[in-house]
Simulated assay, not measured.
Amino acid sequence: MTETEPAAVFWDIGGVIVDLQSIQAGHMAFIESLLEEYDSPLSTAEALDQWRSTLGEYFRSGEGTEYLPARAGYREAIDEILDADVDDVAWEPLFQQIHDEYAEPHDGAVETIQRLADSSLHVGVISDVDDDEGQRMLEKFGAWSSFDSFTSSEAVGYKKPDRRMFETALQKADVEGEQAVMIGDRYANDMEGADALDMTTISFGAEDGPAVDHHVEELREISALVGVSD
């Protein structure tokens, strides 16, 4: 940690709070449901590969750190795997239902968030997730009310590592970068993005590098790192 005691701790959602394997399982279940309901020339495995490929191309299509809504990417992916024209009012509720059923937090995430929320620290989110998707997951996990702020790419208009994401979050917490901690799972987006504003970084799965101050294998380790005792 820096010599300055932290006043704010910010969490990424995907890959830190939420287990991405649970999200992937939800996407698989959603695709299987679509294939049962609508015509498609693809097998389940082929449809899953096409889904992933289309989403990857979609998110890479943005200019620089421009925000692209995930729901629009899902729309494109559905059109690629189905012959039928599926209206948004048909697929979106199903996607949300299955997504919410499958999404699960990483072990220790909610417990640690709540412990930090009970301290004097400002506890916030800095995430590239769509607003409604992020809020639904945190509400499902029982963690939404523990956060003092929520900074999303949808609201800011840019995705990490754009400094505007971190500047917005710091402004909400009324702290300087050296007073804040960022917990993330991606090196370039979370670690380098936060380090550029002098934030202390904690990696949960991000690769090593000079922008990483601490690595944790379990999220419960974070409490001690930020000075919150059990």
Rank of each mutant, 00 (worst) to 15 (best):
T54P: 06
G134M: 01
Q96G: 13
V226P: 10
L138D: 02
I78F: 07
S119F: 04
L48A: 15
H99I: 09
V110F: 00
A103E: 11
Y74V: 14
T201F: 06
E101F: 13
T168Y: 05
Y38Q: 12
G62N: 14
Y74T: 13
P69A: 04
G26T: 02
D213H: 11
L20C: 08
V16P: 11
D19M: 07
T200Y: 06
I202T: 01
A47N: 01
H106Y: 05
L121R: 04
Y187E: 02
D39P: 11
Y74A: 13
E3Q: 13
T2N: 13
A72L: 15
L94S: 15
I23M: 09
G26Y: 01
A194F: 05
G124F: 03
H99S: 15
Q96D: 09
D88A: 13
L138C: 03
M1T: 07
P105H: 10
S61K: 09
M137L: 13
Q171L: 10
S149L: 00
V16D: 07
V228G: 07
H27W: 12
D79I: 09
S53R: 15
E139F: 06
Q97S: 15
L20S: 12
L219R: 03
L197H: 05
E104R: 15
G227L: 07
H106A: 06
F95H: 14
E139C: 07
D100P: 12
Q96E: 11
V228C: 06
D19S: 09
V228Y: 04
Q114V: 04
A77L: 05
F59H: 08
V129L: 12
S61C: 10
D87F: 06
Y102Q: 15
Y187I: 04
